[in-house]
Amino acid sequence: MFLEARSICKAYGPRVVLDGVSFTILEGGITGLIGPNGAGKTTLFEALAGVLPVDSGQALFRGQPVRARDRKAVLSYMPDGIQPWADQPVGWLLRFYSGLHGAPPHRAEQLIEALQLGDFRAARAGSLSKGEWKRFLLAMSLLTPQPLLLLDEPFDGLDFRQTQEVMGLLKTVRDRTLLLSIHQLNDATRVCSNLILLSRGRIVGAGTLEDLRGKANLESGGLEEIFLALT
């Protein structure tokens, strides 16, 4: 197993957000963590990334337990809805992030080109629109070298064309395993080879679309129907 989450529990006071979450991810490809708003996707990502303390549970990487503080060696997590260093120009921030993570010097330029950020090099990050921000954060996340990349809602805020382009870009990432949290079910089926369904802090199903359809006892139907049947 590439990554295994075992019985991860997290509660804020009496409110249980993650209730014994366990799943596995195979190496390579794109896996989608699917769930409605409030299902616990972001909490699970933060717990896996080691930026949020959990009540119990552990994460194993290639069969070996990895402590929360050591997770940054094996995975990189890009949160949704953050606005890092809004006063600095986009070009500088990508150079900084690239330098900090030891990415090859040309990598930032490649991503600026691929994500159409060339016009915003000199712009303050804080002046970007929501879609531009999303592409900028995506560029930052793709500058990190860890073998596993966790992206929280990577398509949120992108228009249809941008979503298509970003999906295309993510599919070209061959040397890393991607775990995406997505609440738009249509987006999920278009980009992810494997799916993990999360509802109210619990895993309700995992596998390919066909696996999940079988688990839900449905002969046809999309992810939406499967999700409703399983929850």
């Binding site: 933060e46 990334a49 080691g50 930026v51 940054k72 060696a73 990189s76 997590y77 890009m78 949160p79 809805g81 953050i82 606005q83 890092p84 260093w85 809004a86 992030y97 900090l100 993570h101 030891g102 930052m140 990190t144």
Partner: peptide, 13 residues
Amino acid sequence: ESGSWKLLLQAPV
């Protein structure tokens, strides 16, 4: 406040 701390927590230092 901006959330950039979550990125710095993952920095390789």
